[in-house]
Write a protein that binds this DNA or RNA. Structure first.
Lengths: 232, 232
DNA sequence: TTCCTTGGTGTACAAAATACACTTATCAGC
DNA sequence: GCTGATAAGTGTATTTTGTACACCAAGGAA
């Protein structure tokens, strides 16, 4: 059991916004709190940073215990340390976000918390416990900005995807600022030459099947190294 | 005297990269360490976060004690928490940078540290104590990016400045990526209408005197609110 | 066979970025 | 007071990039 006295001076946590993309919607993984404070409210997955643990490692651990996933995109965003942000004492938290492929994915974390976890679409991710609304806002804003500099799409999409899925992903992230024109989007994304046409098509859809693509990781890395601009 | 036992579990600090611009050079304010570890090496100004102090307030305090300045541009960048980053124990630090007008400015801080402070041009700001090289890199990278989205120039320049000074500032920040074309720079910056022509001229220079400008703060704020793009 | 749904494609116009060279105003030194 | 040195100031043509816009194609369902 967590005893606040043990962290009397000040406690250190990480909180993690885990983004996923499913059915055309951007979602985050939240946990329903079982005890006070903020009982029954949704909160971000987070945990204390162990004395011998690097910050990034703590964020990875939180993600791993909850989802069983490893080696995902993870980025530190900002540290929230308002004196009264936690009702039980001084708790300073480092906010991270990570990008995860939801598709065909069950929560198989080791933590008992994973029972209480749920993917919530970002429009419904309001009224969170603590200052987690603020943390979500900061992370989402960072993602919106980051997506203009790096092709993060392939962290969120399944290995094979259609151009329409990719466009919907961008719209979900950039919403409501941008309604993207289909032809211009395709022209631009294809001109970057980071997509590989798999010469396969969707199956079992009641309309013309779309072609499937995958990301070309090598070319993507070359672009990143060259300080490449990904404005959509 | 600082006793490490008092912060046994883990200690919390802020470190502040204080940028200034003088004689065409971008500089940061460093402190020569007087005691171990890293005696006689240059280090970033920093301090512990007090139990009842917000993070931003701690960063402002560090700046104020050192320079006597208030109300300057201050931005949190990233938190550095590697287990072994501090030889005496676990110290997690939140990095900030601030932008300061050096011009005609003497260090008049209340802290005894201000005796040991010096403006160092960024090319010479290497081999700092602790992981401060890394922190400097992160803050400088952030400044380079930020300057493309917000007209931060007027935080670093004196109230009245010439277009050449402004261009030199941009070159110092964006170096070595960009050599800026004089005519294109002027065309762009003037088309933004955030500069006011003061109808005054430089005095005492051995060449054609340049016109003086100041920033129009209201228009700048309107631009920022509208999510304005400042690519140079 | 028809209908419904989403996939896929090109062109014309506007806006923005870039490349580039000479004249002007002042002070210093003779 | 003339000359030289220095940085200030200025415009245009070209290329690149962004934007607006509408119809036919392919497959499954009825």
């Amino acid at each position: 059991m967590f005893n606040f006295e043990d962290y009397a001076k000040s406690a250190f946590t990480v909180d993690n916004i885990i983004f996923g993309f499913d059915q055309g919607e951007l979602k985050i993984l939240l946990i329903k709190r079982g005890e006070p404070p903020y009982t029954n409210q949704w909160a971000l997955p987070g945990n204390f940073v162990y004395p011998n643990e690097d910050l990034d490692a703590a964020a990875e651990r939180v993600l791993g215990e909850l989802t069983g996933l490893k080696d995902v995109y993870l980025e530190q965003v900002r540290t929230f340390g308002e004196v009264n942000r936690h009702p039980l004492g001084r708790v300073i938290t480092v906010a991270y976000y990570s990008l995860v492929k939801i598709k065909g994915y069950n929560l198989k974390g080791t933590s008992p918390l994973s029972q209480k976890a749920k993917w919530v679409s970002i429009e419904n991710a309001t009224n969170l416990a603590f200052d987690h609304d603020q943390i979500f806002e900061a992370c989402f804003r960072r993602l919106k900005r980051r997506v203009r500099t790096r092709p993060l799409g392939f962290e969120l999409l399944p290995r094979k995807f259609t151009l329409t899925e990719l466009q919907q992903l961008y719209e979900a992230i950039l919403q409501p600022e941008k309604k993207i024109d289909k032809r211009n989007f395709r022209k631009k994304i294809l001109s970057m030459k980071i997509l590989v046409d798999l010469n396969e098509a969707q199956e079992g859809v009641a309309h013309r099947p779309a072609k499937l693509y995958k990301f070309d990781k090598k070319k993507y890395e070359k672009f990143v190294a060259e300080g490449f601009n990904f404005e959509i």
